[in-house]
């Protein structure tokens, strides 16, 4: 093999004057195609892997047929979280888990907590600012629902009775019960926006005043001013 190779090199050197141009072209085509083949061989498996494995989370998955039933007369994406009787009249927020069916890769887990919310019965009227900047008044006694995920970096806020506020354990973000950013004593509050408000639908139960509270639960991207839902 090596002898053969040596000969070729020798020939090339000898014939240089006569067919240098031809050799060059031939050698360029040879080199280019070898290179191309090499790149294809290397890149092929990588692309296949990226396509099948890494990009997999972008694919939508259907629920198993047993669970693939609509959610009755309540809109899709709304979850039954609590009943109005379970909320105190004084407006103390209560934390509830949102239960849903979910996939975890190869597992399907029915009735699994997928997140949590703070619900409270408003003890007085509350003026809120909507996405588009317009204002809206939530009436006393209506149900207000906030995401527990801190819009700063995604830690989970918790209600603190002493300060009567929702506090984030990570980077000192603090929120009023209305969800608004709290700035007591001019402290740093690194959160880019107020706590994310979620829409609720109230549905009466057959008898009595008690009502079911459905929450349109979603997560939002953290660390930005806009409230962009994660899809």
């Amino acid at each position: 093999m090596s002898e053969h190779l040596d000969n070729e090199v020798g020939d090339e050197a000898g014939d240089e004057a006569e067919s240098a141009v031809g050799t060059e072209r031939r050698s360029f085509i040879l080199e280019a195609s070898t290179g191309l083949l090499g790149v294809c061989l290397g890149v092929g498996p990588v692309i296949a892997g990226l396509w099948g494995f890494v990009f997999d989370p972008f694919r939508k998955r259907e629920l198993p047929s047993k669970y693939n039933t609509g959610s009755g007369d309540v809109k899709e994406g709304h979850y039954l979280v609590a009943t109005t009787d379970s909320l105190p009249e004084d407006g103390t927020p209560q934390r509830f888990e949102v239960i849903s069916d979910k996939y975890d890769a190869w597992n399907f887990i029915p009735r699994q907590p997928i997140g949590s919310v703070y619900l409270r019965k408003l003890p007085e009227d509350l003026e809120i600012v909507l996405e588009d900047g317009s204002k809206k008044v939530l009436k006393k006694g209506e149900i207000d629902c906030l995401q527990t995920t801190c819009p700063h970096a995604g830690c989970s806020v918790s209600y603190d009775g002493n300060t009567n506020a929702l506090l984030c354990p990570c980077h000192n973000s603090e929120f009023e019960l209305s969800g608004a950013k709290r700035t007591v004593g001019g402290k740093d509050n690194p959160s880019p926006r107020s706590l994310d408000r979620l829409d609720t639908v109230i549905k009466p139960i057959a008898d009595g005043d008690n009502m079911e509270i459905y929450v349109e639960f979603m997560e939002f991207y953290t660390g930005i001013h806009e409230k962009n839902p994660v899809s």
Partner: peptide, 13 residues
């Protein structure tokens, strides 16, 4: 993030 985490939430992937 979706690619690294394997979806929008933490799990098996």
């Amino acid at each position: 993030q979706k690619m690294v985490v394997g979806g929008t939430e933490y799990g098996n992937l």
